[in-house]
Write a protein that binds this DNA or RNA. Structure first.
Lengths: 201, 201
DNA sequence: GCACCGGTAGGACATTTGTCACGGGTGGGC
DNA sequence: GCCCACCCGTGACAAATGTCCTACCGGTGC
């Protein structure tokens, strides 16, 4: 039996996946969690062979959880399952030691198949997505530029950001300008859009 | 047997729900579609008793599809199933003649139960959500304000919007200013956030 | 040692954005 | 007929935003 840990915050998706996976006779869902920060502690006692992680979760992202698992439970394979096939997500998933990356499109049968394949040591990645990740390249944003852009993306003004990040207003303007330039856009809103689209936020 | 039409664009969710519903012995999924604009045509031949509609779909939203069904196939009950419990969504769903409104949290068992209840003529609505919808109130935005804010939300500048909507730049500024005022926010980004959060876009 | 990059900051400047006061037009409700 | 809401527009003004240049500091790589 393949022991699976399932991390997914959306209730209906979580229970549907758990039910479907349990229908497979070689797969057993040994634990389900709803928050990213519960993944590692629960995995340490449940000892899954494969962890199926959503990315967008409260507490911690699936990518952070993947990195935590690599350190805390190295034998456990990580399979990322996400709504958004953003190039940056795939890149970061691989850097966090994930063995596979699936998007929540495509049929459910893919899922069980992917679980068996990562357990056999294979890497499971959508080829089209891999190509997109390679062509898009790594994020051009520095850490600070990312922070500032993320803050600006939810409506903060320059002075809000400067207070929130303990920077001078001039510095914030410089970072924002740099982020806009590097993303090839015309203002902070477009910059935030393309950064999000590419998984750079 | 309860005949169900399932409209959901996300592949894994769609097939998972279809499978789970078919496991119930009094429910039969007679059609699945992936786009909002396929709902009515398919329903006219498949003749479902209940239509289970996602809101965010390509082609047309589930809310538009619900209105189409009310006109084209009045006997069919509509059950909206969505990720976001936005007050405005619930309000618009009811106005479009929906019999129920479920969020994709909570267990899958709720789903089959809700289907049976709407077929029995009941309205199925999360009480907490109903309270939020009532307290938030209807959208204060006029049609034009909504259009302009929506355009601004994805990075368009004033002159972009004026060209896209065939308005003068001054007019666009006035509408944006009005939208910012009515949402009680400080700039277009915050205005877009709260409008989206409340389901006004 | 030196070049380079990232973080931080200031100043000057043009552009964009947001506000306000005002006007006109249209259509619906009482 | 009158009022009101919505549509569309102008002009002026203040505030925020975006760009560019300069500068200093610490670390990293050669």
């Amino acid at each position: 039996m393949i022991r699976v840990l399932l991390a997914e915050d959306q209730g209906m998706m979580r229970s549907a996946l758990a039910l479907l996976l349990d229908l497979e006779d070689d797969i057993e869902v040994v634990a389900t969690v709803t928050r990213g920060d519960e993944v590692v502690p629960v995995a340490l006692t449940a000892r899954p062979d494969v962890a199926l992680l959503d990315i967008e979760m409260p507490g911690a992202s699936g990518l952070e959880a993947a990195a935590g698992l690599r350190d805390g439970l190295p034998g456990c394979r990580v399979l990322i399952l996400t709504t958004f096939g953003r190039p940056g997500y795939l890149r970061r998933a691989m850097e966090a030691g994930a063995a596979g990356f699936l998007v929540k499109d495509g049929p459910v049968e893919e899922l069980a198949a992917a679980i068996r394949r990562v357990l056999a040591g294979e890497k499971v990645i959508d080829p089209a997505l891999a190509a997109a990740a390679l062509s898009t390249g790594a994020s051009p944003l520095t850490d600070r530029e990312r922070d500032v852009l993320a803050a600006a993306a939810d409506g903060a003004t320059i002075s809000d950001i400067s207070r929130r990040l303990h920077l001078s207003e001039s510095t914030v303007r410089n970072y924002l300008s740099a982020a806009i330039g590097k993303t090839g856009t015309r203002n902070r809103i477009e910059a935030a859009h393309t950064a999000r689209h590419n998984g750079w936020l």
